[in-house]
Design a protein around this nucleic acid. Structure first.
Lengths: 139, 139
DNA sequence: AGGCAATCTTGATCGATTCCAGAAAAGGTG
DNA sequence: CACCTTTTCTGGAATCGATCAAGATTGCCT
């Protein structure tokens, strides 16, 4: 059982309920931080056939609706996650690209204030920790 | 006059001194946070003709040698800057993509410690502030 | 000056993402 | 429950940033 019913989540967000959308939501639930290819493969396993564009469109719709969040570490294709309510950050492995969540110490965004904002109106501070994951360290 | 003589900087880093490299260094000095296309155009203005690969090779060589730093905000092509000694961060405009430097409050890296590192060995905390720049705010 | 090795040129290739036009389907309405 | 409008999905092609490959050049050390 999923933490949130995909159908209900879509309706609550004012989005139409379709096969590809449910499949993508379930794929995201099963594979946090998955890239589009992984999501597309999982969705196709569930539905039989889903076009690449449908996956991209769905992911964009979910991002716009606030149901999913797009994260894009440098040197990696876009990845998506369902955790959107809290303001958390990520650790990325320099070797294998694995991603893990890191809770924000502050909890509200922006959780950091720049020393000099240069006149920018800042609404978010995105933190990416770079390092090496346990698997790659031991190898 | 440049803060650092490109020729000397290249020699100090153990790199060969070539036309394209000097042109790229000067382009970076004149255009902080420039993307590869801007750098290539500036280099061609200075030299007459420089191949795209030369620009990419030079940028990689400079990054590897520690003379330049590659930054890659989500949704934007790779950009490069010469400030490498300090540990500073960036503000990115959501509208026009402009980038400005923000000094790090701590100064040493990693300047932040994650609350739970999940066993990762972390060596850097990269902070990206997202907002709207003065120009885009007034429009 | 001589020679090795790194570097630059031209051209092709690749992966991720988006554009396009048309077919299909979801959801509100009578 | 059938109909209609609007959104969404399909299939194919195209774009964009970045990289690879092979050969010609050139910088640098002896």
């Amino acid at each position: 059982m999923l933490p949130v019913d995909p159908t209900q989540a879509l309706r609550d967000a004012g989005l139409r309920v379709t096969g590809p959308r449910i499949a993508v939501l379930e794929a995201l639930s099963a594979h946090p931080h998955a890239d589009t290819d992984t999501i597309a493969t999982a969705a196709r396993t569930a539905l039989g056939a889903v076009s690449t564009q449908a996956v991209y469109d769905v992911l964009r719709a979910l991002s716009d609706a606030g149901l999913a969040r797009r994260i894009e570490p440098a040197g990696s294709p876009a990845r998506f996650e369902l955790r959107v309510g809290d303001n958390h950050h990520h650790v990325v492995c320099r070797v294998c690209g694995a991603i893990a969540d890191v809770d924000c110490a502050v909890g509200e965004r922006p959780c950091l204030d720049p020393s000099d904002s240069h006149g920018f109106v800042i609404d978010e501070a995105e933190v990416t920790y770079w390092g090496v994951c346990p698997d790659c360290t031991s190898t």
